[in-house]
């Protein structure tokens, strides 16, 4: 189906949806309004447009080019952890405004409401194929998952917890980089997290990075690049410098695959590219080959 046809379908459907709502009585009875703009997903990599339902059933992966799209914390947790095994760590940490950046508190408050998250990363303990692990998931819906004090502190504490309890760490990274609204404090989080990783590493524990879309800037230049094993999802953006910054310097357009997962693999900066549908078994194999043993606690618990 051509793109224009698809949009026509959406338009027709949305018209159909609004028809009964023209009746004011019915409108009162059913306050739920269908939002047609969420009906389709247009792949930012190849431009293919698909029904959002189909796209989501496919784990938010583009069926045309295999781009692994951004997903939120809950979706990631659901497709990664054994059901009902997740316990959050440091859930109470929230941002303040260290350099008095105008409007920062309001922005944070609005995002907390919108995303149902306190900050851009959630950390905790769970099992994956019954292997107990510390897990961290960054959610790019929250201020592009930029790293300020809270993100830095939660990741640092997650590594310290894992060191103390002799656990591996799996981090799903996604970030626009350092959170500029927190000034130099955000830069220092790169050093702080790297320090905690150094100690976790020295204690002999395993750290697996899963780079998801987009992993950039100060996060690439700190904890994302420090995994013992670095996995990337297909077609995601991974890099240090912003694309437009580089294009501005060299005065020409960069090829599409520049700073992709595949580019990073080719240049030797990720160990493997792994599709979502086999992420759990892959992590499980990695735990197994690092002599972690399966926990008996989990017997397939209730939903989250």
């Amino acid at each position: 189906m051509a793109l224009e046809d698809l949009f026509k379908v959406v338009k027709d459907r949305s018209m159909a949806d609004t028809k009964p709502k023209a009746d004011p009585k019915q409108k009162k009875a059913s306050p739920k309004v269908e939002i047609p703009k969420g009906l389709l997903f247009k792949c930012p990599r190849c431009g293919t447009v698909v029904y959002r339902d189909d796209f989501e059933r496919n784990r938010s992966v583009c069926s045309a080019c295999n781009y692994h799209a951004r997903i939120n914390f809950r979706e990631r947790l659901e497709m990664t952890a054994d059901k009902g095994t997740f316990t959050e760590l440091d859930a109470g940490l929230t941002s303040v405004n260290p350099i008095d950046f105008p409007g920062y508190e309001n922005k944070i408050a609005a995002l907390q409401k919108e995303c149902g998250l306190r900050e851009a990363v959630v950390t905790g303990v769970c099992t994956i194929h019954r292997y107990k692990t510390v897990i961290g998931i960054m959610d790019s819906n929250f201020m592009m998952a930029s790293m300020g004090s809270v993100v830095g502190e939660k990741i640092t504490r997650a590594f310290e917890y894992a060191t103390e309890h002799k656990l591996p760490v799996v981090l799903f990274t996604a970030s626009g980089g350092a959170r500029m609204q927190e000034g130099i404090i955000s830069l220092m989080q790169m050093a702080k997290t790297s320090g905690a990783i150094a100690r976790h590493s020295e204690s002999g524990q395993l750290y697996v990075t899963v780079m998801t879309d987009p992993t950039t800037g100060g996060v690439t230049a700190s904890f994302a690049s420090l995994g013992d094993i670095i996995i990337a999802e297909p077609k995601v953006l991974i890099g240090f410098a912003g694309r437009r910054v580089i294009e501005g310097t060299i005065k020409q357009k960069l090829p599409d695959d520049f700073q992709s997962a595949e580019f990073m693999l080719e240049n030797g900066f990720v160990d493997m590219i792994v599709e979502r549908k086999v992420m759990r078994p892959t992590l499980s194999k990695i735990f197994r080959t690092h002599n972690y043993t399966r926990s008996e606690e989990y017997k397939g618990g209730a939903a989250l």
């Binding site: 100690r199 020295e202 690049s225």
Partner: peptide, 23 residues
Amino acid sequence: CGIDAEKRGQGEAIARNLMEFMT
């Protein structure tokens, strides 16, 4: 910030220094 810097792992190079200098 440039093509070659990305190809040779600018992010990894910085990250590695942060971790190694810490210890």
